[in-house]
């Protein structure tokens, strides 16, 4: 009984970040890493997972400490916590693969200033229990990763003719160099935003159509 009640209240917290309030496609936060490193699936995935790790760990700690952090220095404390986990992830990534670390470059360190993380710490983790904070962070982090992979897949497919490094179109494919370059990030993001806007408009229309039939 309590378990189902718990999961019922937790589920929307989790799915919100994945879809309804997706940090990239709906809230349009964290644009800098989104545009900069999403030129291949592997880079997108690494960046997404690194951000997810920082987000979950810092949300958990912020939530744990939410009652002891004085409100005047809360932002400074959050930044210290976030910066710590970013450094940890930075070292971990270097230990896992230097190639990926090189590809992501300064954007690993710049996770510190990713507004999704500070935003969730301030708006959610500091006001909710640890379990809820971690759930929310996981949802947001996975939503961010999902968005990055959406961009990375299109850009790698068109810009390099491959997916996750595997050749898709064969040797005769002419790659669209622009897709790997920064402008390609903007074009593909624009196209995805269009798709999401269209989805939202359509579901709003169907919802509006249902409404009067309920009333009648």
């Amino acid at each position: 009984m309590t378990a189902t009640g718990m999961s019922e209240s937790i589920w929307p917290v989790y799915t919100r970040g994945l879809w309804r309030e997706n940090p990239v496609f709906v809230m349009q936060l964290g644009m800098c890493p989104t545009l900069a490193v999403s030129n291949s699936v592997i880079n997108s995935l690494s960046m997404g997972l690194a951000t997810l790790a920082v987000l979950v760990a810092s949300s958990a700690l912020v939530s744990l400490m939410r009652n002891v952090i004085p409100k005047q220095v809360r932002i400074a404390t959050y930044i210290v916590i976030i910066a710590t986990f970013v450094t940890v992830v930075d070292y971990a990534l270097q230990a896992i693969s230097l190639d990926i670390h090189k590809a992501l470059g300064a954007f690993i360190q710049l996770i510190v200033v990713n507004c999704i993380i500070l935003g969730r710490a301030e708006a959610f983790a500091s006001k909710n229990s640890v379990v809820r904070a971690i759930t929310d962070a996981a949802g947001m982090g996975l939503g961010f990763t999902f968005a990055l992979i959406c961009l990375g897949a299109v850009r790698e497919l068109l810009g390099n003719g491959s997916l996750l490094g595997f050749d898709v179109f064969g040797p005769q494919f002419e790659p669209w160099a622009i897709m790997i370059l920064p402008p390609g990030g903007f074009f593909v993001l624009g196209a995805w935003l269009l798709v999401f806007a269209w989805f939202k408009e359509r579901s709003a229309r169907t919802a509006a159509r249902k409404e009067p039939s309920h009333a009648g």
Partner: peptide, 10 residues
């Protein structure tokens, strides 16, 4: 400009 950036060789 798009073509120039996308297909620099062609």
């Amino acid at each position: 400009a798009f073509l120039q950036a996308a297909f620099p060789v062609a």
